[in-house]
Structure formats: structure tokens, C-alpha cells
Amino acid sequence: MLILLGAAEAESAGLAAETVTNGDPTFAGPLAGVQLGLKVYHAVEPEFKDNVDADVYDEQIGMMEMVLEVDSIIEEMSSIREQFCKY
């Protein structure tokens, strides 16, 4: 199982990623305290980008690389994976 995120900001991407790996950090939703430890990536990360068709990626997502803060999203996602991923 793998989770793919499209969040607009590093912070919200990190929050979603933490929820599916370490359980709900707000301790509010159905996943509160449930450590799923799933692999999670954002659509602008190389793990996703480099493994799909480059033309399709460019057509569907390419422009958003200029819009989103790609570096900070990657940094946030990597940090969450290092801390919580089991698989």
C-alpha cells in the first residue's frame, strides 16, 4: 500500500503524511493513535515523478512545479518518512 498526496503546502502535506504513518497528530479523527506506518509520497517528489511517464507528468502536473514550494514539500515529506515509515 502506498499513499499519494497532492497538498498545496508543505505543512498540510506533512500533517496528512504524519496521519497515515504515525496516526492522527491532532488526536481528533478516526486515525488518532493508529500507527499505520504506510509509505507516503507527494506528487512533486522524484520517487513519483521519475517513475511515471515524463510527458504525462509534464502535461498533468508539470506547471504546478513552478507554483508549489517543491523543495520544502520534499524536505517535509522526507522527514516524516524517516521518522515514521515502517515499510
Binding site: M1, L2, A7, A8
Partner: peptide
């Protein structure tokens, strides 16, 4: 992989 996708209207 089986994939779960959570998109964002203001992101991807």
C-alpha cells in the same frame, strides 16, 4: 502497489 490518492483542489 495499491495506491490511495488524496489530492488537493489548490495543489494537485
Amino acid at each position: 502497489k495499491k495506491v490511495i490518492i488524496i489530492g488537493d483542489r489548490d495543489g494537485i
